[in-house]
Simulated assay, not measured.
Amino acid sequence: MTGFALGVDQEEWCGQLRALAAERLRPLAEKGEPGRVNRPLLAALGELGLLERVFASGALELCLLRESLAYGCTEAETALALQGLGAYPVLRAGSEEQRERWLPGVRAGRAVAAFALSEPGAGSDAAALALAATADPAVAPAAGGGWRLSGEKCWISNAPEADFYTVFARTGEGPGAKGVSAFLVPADRPGLSGAALDMLSPHPIGSLTFDGVPVGPRDLLGEPGRGFRVAMDTLNLFRPSVGAFAVGMARAALDATLAYTADRTAFGGTLSDLQAVAHRVAEMATRTEAARLLVYAAAGAYDRGAGDVPRRAAMAKLLATETAQYVVDHAVQLHGAVALRRGHLLEHLYREVRAPRIYEGASEVQRTIIAKELYAGVVTR
């Protein structure tokens, strides 16, 4: 995919999504409590059929959806994305029983999903996770035994309020990533508890404690020892769309800056008359467009089943999230003190834009992935 342009129908759909986010979803988001799951907002996303689109669409459509919602209501975008992240492993690797039990509720916005990979000592190095799944024949004896989960998860979006968790634990079939299995763990499973974390970003994030939580073969997502692949398949889809989320925020900040600098009078004219301001805005626009093109190139590669998806996905997330940070920061600078006032769009975006450079693989991890993929194709003497 060497270029990207939306068709007329796609442009109209994106415009409808931006208007829907601003007019229908933003009021619901504003009624929510920061750091808590906003169930009325999720229900609205389900009612509007947007959660269904997360599971029925390819990467390109998912990116369009996330970018457009982020432009008008970041809370709605994040609520939608977290449902997809938590439940996509069930769609891809779950049993028919698991899909029938949980996915209708996720699509309707009734059941809250969460993706539980990170731990206090295993964030960027996800293969180093230590949550132990210890074999216990007393768990599910009719199925040949199960496991008990012991340890902690941390920085888990939607925790501790989710209704179920996609949990990655070490079952020990091999070293590193080879010994990790994925489980679907309902929130009411005995021994599972959690606590909310007070974070900079406004969406819910918490920690989870597993005190001998019983899981059986029917809770497995895929095969034992193949859980890390489940995690990576999910991240390869969602990393470009994290970039789309970032692009949506960057475009919102850019448009706000264009309007403000074209109208704000200073030094005998408008701010846009000042070359320093105009050149800064031009740089913001150019970086945003470049990031957007890379995001949709990665999404197109995913939908085509290209072999270089991990590299493209990493590049897209890296450039888009770093660009969004740059654009929002400079938008605040050009607005001045007004942008620092609580409740201003840019004050909100300034808090939202920082986390995507860390979650689903920090920028440094993306650079490592890109370099590894590049060198894998080099033939040495």
Rank of each mutant, 00 (worst) to 15 (best):
K178P: 05
N236D: 15
L346G: 04
L319S: 03
A81R: 14
S124F: 00
T2M: 09
F238S: 09
D303E: 13
A282M: 02
P356C: 03
Y165P: 11
A182S: 15
A337K: 12
A19Y: 03
A44Y: 13
L274R: 12
A79I: 06
S150Y: 00
L69D: 05
G145R: 08
S124P: 03
A320K: 10
G305P: 12
L221R: 10
V8M: 05
V106W: 03
L28H: 00
L82S: 04
G194M: 07
P175M: 00
P27E: 06
S118M: 13
F183N: 13
D188F: 06
F245P: 02
L65E: 02
V180G: 12
A177S: 13
A376K: 15
K153A: 05
E352L: 01
S363Y: 08
L25N: 06
F238I: 06
A301Q: 15
A177H: 14
S57M: 00
T288N: 14
C154S: 02
P40V: 07
M249H: 07
G343E: 04
I205T: 13
G123V: 12
E352W: 10
P141N: 10
L85I: 11
A324T: 01
L28G: 03
T257Q: 09
V365I: 15
L17D: 04
R264W: 01
A70L: 08
V213H: 05
A140T: 13
E223F: 01
S272V: 05
L20K: 13
Y260T: 04
E223D: 12
A108P: 03
L80I: 10
F115V: 07
L42M: 09
D188E: 12
G343Q: 06
F238G: 08
R170D: 10
Q325L: 10
A187K: 14
A143N: 08
A259L: 15
A253V: 03
A182P: 14
A285T: 02
H335E: 05
A56W: 00
R367F: 04
S272A: 13
L60S: 10
W147A: 04
S57V: 02
P310C: 07
E61H: 05
E347S: 09
D211R: 15
A298K: 10
A355V: 14
E77K: 09
R26D: 02
S181H: 04
E161L: 11
W155A: 13
E12N: 01
D211A: 15
T368P: 00
R53G: 02
